[in-house]
């Protein structure tokens, strides 16, 4: 369909709205002046200062460990949950189960966070690294479940049946056929889980305890005191990591897509 000048204008405005604040943030992280509105020349001093800020670095390290751990557990549980949603159409409590998968996606974080905290206190677990990891696993697994589920819905069941038919037992079939084919979705799920964990402030604030301050908690406590170029620098690095990750992921998908199209072209000719 033709996309007129009107469409282009709207899209340009919307994307400008989405990107300008982030771009400004990145630019001002290189500002030599401490004042936000004054451009004092290019400088990387805030990055150096950030690097030597032990509190910030500790928080970053905690965040990465929580992220990797919770994303990994969340991906395993989420993939199992997706299999349950797609493959087990009837079992007692299925409604409850799918409810527990969908609800955390929209549940206000303050509720999820508060309720988890009260659970940890009620059973007497000391809050810290592990409670944050459990909390993050709980909500990220639901996102993973949704991502993997959408792949499983379009999965051709006859591939599994063919494996069974050729003598491959069910568990082996899952690892030899199903898992390799849904792997891109599982990896995407992991990446999403990791970013969500990296990003979370509210749930972590409730679930954490002494010694387990995550980066968003740290940033939040400093942001409340006002805009600082040091935080701009930390944010820029976070944005950079995520952007590079997403770009790599999309290049890989593009190449796969290209390969597939080439294959099909090849096949059409070979026929």
């Amino acid at each position: 369909m033709k996309s007129g000048r009107f469409d282009t204008t709207i899209l340009t405005l919307c994307f400008a709205f989405l990107y300008i604040p982030i771009i400004i943030l990145v630019i001002y992280s290189f500002n030599a002046s401490k004042l936000v509105t004054v451009w004092g020349g290019f400088s990387t001093q805030w990055y150096r200062q950030m690097w030597s800020n032990e509190g910030l670095m500790d928080a970053a390290w905690v965040t990465i460990r929580v992220g990797i751990l919770s994303a990994s557990i969340g991906t395993v549980l989420g993939t199992l949950a997706a299999l349950t949603l797609v493959r087990f159409t009837r079992f007692p409590g299925r409604m409850l189960f799918s409810g527990m998968i969908y609800a955390p996606l929209v549940m206000p974080e303050v509720i999820t966070g508060l309720s988890l905290l009260l659970l940890f206190v009620a059973v007497g677990i000391d809050r810290g690294f592990w409670t944050v990891t459990i909390a993050h696993t709980t909500f990220t697994m639901c996102y993973v479940a949704i991502v993997v589920q959408s792949r499983l819905i379009t999965f051709d069941r006859s591939l599994e049946e063919a494996a069974l038919d050729l003598g491959c037992p069910p568990v082996k079939t899952f690892f030899k056929i199903t898992l390799p084919l849904i792997l891109p979705a599982v990896i995407a799920g992991w990446m999403l889980a990791f970013t969500l964990s990296l990003d979370d402030l509210v749930i972590a604030s409730f679930a954490t305890g002494p010694g387990a301050t995550t980066l968003p908690i740290k940033i939040y406590s400093q942001v409340r005191l006002g805009v600082t170029p040091e935080i701009n620098a930390a944010c820029t690095i976070l944005i950079g990591i995520v952007t590079i990750g997403v770009i790599i992921a999309s290049v890989v998908t593009k190449r796969q897509e290209y390969q597939r199209q080439r294959d099909e072209h090849f096949a059409a000719k070979g026929a």
Binding site: Y19, I219, I231
Partner: peptide, 24 residues
């Protein structure tokens, strides 16, 4: 999708610098 992958907190924070009285 890209902005969605970057931190929620950061995106909100970015607006402080723009909107505050002596801001951009």
């Amino acid at each position: 999708i890209l902005p969605f992958w970057t931190s929620f907190l950061i995106r909100v924070y970015a607006w402080i610098g723009i909107l505050k009285p002596e801001g951009l």
